[in-house]
Amino acid sequence: MVSGPPLAFLLVFFAAPTLIMVLASFRSPGEFGGLAPLVDASGRIDLNVDGYARLVTEPVFAQVFVKSAGYAALTTLVCLLLGYPLATLIARSAKKHRDLLLLLVILPFWSNFLIRIYAWMIILGPNAALARLVNRALAAFGADPVPLLFSAFAVLVCLVYVSLPFMVLPLYANLEKHDRTLLDAAQDLGANAWQRFWRITFPLSLPGVYAGAALVFIPALGVFAIPDILGGPDDTLIGNLIKQQFLETRDWPFGSVLSIVLTAAALALAGGATWVARRSGGASRA
């Protein structure tokens, strides 16, 4: 169980803010933003479920949640498809090269998150080589030019870009421990390359897949900076909505409601992933 310093850490940095937020979600917005006093002028304690009611009655919020989950799921899938071969390559390369390759994977972390997003504005910009190349190809097929920037495409590309290391690292940590003899044995027993991957390597890597998927999906679910900077008008995700409630609409209680639902969804997913990983991991303890 959690005890001592870790418990204190969780209390201060997770439980307390969450509690404040839960409380805020039941309060009323202040006249000029912030929160209305807990005890109003007539001496009544002002707690209500208006924010939660809005969530149910106005379908737009559910739609944004679903859209955010869709973006996050797509990001996770693309990261898995790109990260798996990369993690395999690193795990199978000579020991002396591995540290360098891992360093390259985490190298982007050395520059600022926002700067890296702005870099994509340049890469995807209308005058950049990529957009010209794509549009020239489209023109060759008689299609109209498309903007790459300020689109769902730009949001997804950047989401994949910032998330990829979080998929590669846990996958690598798992794949690196695999016993090569198992693949020799599978081959000896008649399995071809695909069967060796699908029957041996992949099932044994599932704990790494679950860990990587959780590390990619959960942050991607709450992201706001990337759609803000690279997205179009249709790319408002739940993270943007929360940010709007706090900074623009200045409706803190409703912002708290959205945050709590997001946190609950993330916790449920993390819990679910841990549970699945433990079940499948139980068999691979050898």
Partner: peptide, 8 residues
């Protein structure tokens, strides 16, 4: 090392 498949 027997190389039994641990997940089976």
């Amino acid at each position: 090392s027997y190389a039994l498949f641990p997940h089976m």
